[in-house]
Amino acid sequence: TFEVERIVRKKIVHGNTSYLVKWKNYSSKDNTWETEDDIRTKYGDLVDDFEK
C-alpha cells in the first residue's frame, strides 16, 4: 500500500487540479501527479495543510 509523505506542488490544467505527491519510503524521482479528488478522498488533511 502506498502512503503519501507530503504534497510537493500543485498544478491546474483546464480547470482540473492535480498535486505532485511524494510517497513515503520512495525517492523523489518516484513522485507522481494525482488528481485532487483521488488525494482528497484519503488524504484531505494533507491537501488542506498544503493549501494554507
Results as ranks from 00 to 15, higher is better:
Thr1Ser: 14
Thr1Asp: 13
Thr1Trp: 13
Thr1Ala: 13
Thr1Gly: 14
Thr1Met: 14
Thr1Leu: 12
Phe2Glu: 12
Phe2Cys: 15
Phe2Gly: 14
Glu3Lys: 03
Glu3Met: 06
Glu3Asp: 08
Glu3Gln: 08
Val4Cys: 07
Val4Ala: 13
Val4Asp: 01
Val4Gly: 03
Glu5Gln: 04
Arg6Cys: 15
Arg6Asn: 08
Arg6Val: 11
Arg6Trp: 10
Ile7Gly: 00
Ile7Gln: 00
Ile7Phe: 01
Ile7Cys: 15
Val8Ala: 02
Val8Tyr: 04
Val8Gln: 03
Val8Glu: 06
Arg9Tyr: 07
Arg9Pro: 00
Arg9Thr: 11
Arg9Ile: 06
Lys10His: 03
Lys10Pro: 00
Lys11Trp: 05
Ile12Pro: 01
Ile12Val: 13
Ile12Asp: 05
Ile12Phe: 06
Val13Cys: 14
Val13Tyr: 07
Val13Pro: 01
Val13Trp: 08
His14Gln: 12
Gly15Arg: 03
Gly15Tyr: 04
Gly15Ala: 04
Gly15Gln: 04
Asn16Gln: 15
Thr17Tyr: 04
Ser18Leu: 15
Ser18Gln: 14
Ser18Ile: 15
Tyr19Arg: 00
Tyr19Asp: 00
Tyr19Ile: 02
Tyr19Thr: 00
Leu20Tyr: 09
Leu20Glu: 07
Leu20Val: 01
Leu20Lys: 02
Leu20Gln: 05
Val21Gln: 01
Val21Leu: 03
Lys22Ala: 07
Lys22Asn: 02
Trp23Met: 02
Trp23Gln: 00
Trp23Ile: 02
Lys24Asn: 05
Asn25Ser: 09
Asn25Leu: 06
Tyr26Val: 14
Tyr26Arg: 15
Ser27Arg: 06
Ser28Lys: 09
Ser28Pro: 10
Ser28Glu: 15
Ser28Ala: 10
Ser28Asn: 12
Lys29Gly: 09
Lys29Pro: 06
Lys29Gln: 12
Lys29Ile: 09
Asp30Gln: 13
Thr32Asn: 02
Thr32Gly: 01
Trp33Phe: 02
Trp33Cys: 06
Glu34Arg: 06
Glu34Asn: 03
Glu34Cys: 15
Thr35Ser: 13
Glu36Ala: 11
Asp37Ala: 14
Asp37Ile: 10
Asp37Ser: 13
Asp38Trp: 15
Asp38Met: 13
Ile39Pro: 11
Ile39Glu: 01
Arg40Ala: 06
Arg40Thr: 06
Thr41Ser: 13
Thr41Lys: 14
Thr41Leu: 14
Lys42Ala: 12
Lys42Glu: 08
Lys42Thr: 09
Lys42Ser: 08
Lys42Leu: 14
Lys42Asn: 12
Tyr43Arg: 05
Tyr43Leu: 04
Tyr43Cys: 07
Tyr43Phe: 11
Asp45Tyr: 14
Asp45Gln: 12
Asp45Met: 09
Asp45Val: 10
Leu46Gly: 03
Leu46Asp: 03
Val47Gln: 03
Val47Asp: 00
Val47Ser: 02
Val47Asn: 01
Asp48Met: 09
Phe50Asn: 02
Phe50Thr: 02
Glu51His: 05
Glu51Asn: 09
Glu51Val: 05
Glu51Gly: 03
Glu51Arg: 03
Glu51Trp: 04
Lys52Ala: 11
Lys52Asp: 06
Lys52Val: 07
